[in-house]
Amino acid sequence: MIFASSILQWAGNIYEKYFGFVDFIIRRSERVVEYTANHFSLVITVMFFSLILWISVGLLISRYEKLANTAFGIGNILFVIPSISLFGIFITIPMLGLGRTSAALALILYAMMPMVRNVYRGIKSVEWPIIEAGRGMGMSPKQILFQIQIPIAWPIIFAGIRVTTVMITGIATVATFIGERNLGRFIHHGIARESADMIIAGAVLVSVIAILLDYILGKVEYKITSPGLRKEQEQS
């Protein structure tokens, strides 16, 4: 009896020490929902513009080879800038200031490298004879782009979308320091208040979301890949 109750007590202590964040999440569920919604609306906005912008840029530089090096140069520099700096620089621009526009713009710039690189790599992965055969069959440049190049590149492009989405979800947490009310805020305030439960709640929530997102998009990636391409990828 005493033994059993001491085990219970021990388990209780462990729970309190390491799983206090579960209580926190339950207690503050309203906040959790609000922050999660904000987090996702930012990610969705960023991905929307990134898809339009960076897929176009990727297609452009795969056609005009000379632009490719410039684009990758810019992308590489952007990628080396710490996320917090990029956010910071945007808020000091008078028209933007603290707020969503600054956060979104910084994240869109961040998305450039993985998106553009994968679109470019995908389009370049289409072997010459396939395009030669398409032209020889009488396909127009537009048909070659939409029926050959993009479909063959699509798995690689989508892999880029997946990596970017997960990355943006992660970096978006840092936007809490420029006023975003998202899941990063639990971590931010948790550190300020030295509340372990709050920090761990934030970290766990955002990690679980990132890992889940990666997993789900991975499944989607497999589904949308033509079986004819799937095998090739597995072999390479």
Binding site: E127, W128, P129, I130, I131, E132, A133, G134, R135, G136, M137, G138, M139, S140, Q147, I148, P151, I152, S226, G228, L229, E232
Partner: peptide, 20 residues
């Protein structure tokens, strides 16, 4: 393009569309 549709074309590397 229309001219080419009237002319059969076969190349050594074949160039079959892998996704179809």
């Amino acid at each position: 393009d229309h001219l080419r549709r009237e002319i059969g074309y076969v190349i050594q590397q074949i160039g079959l569309l892998p996704h179809r």
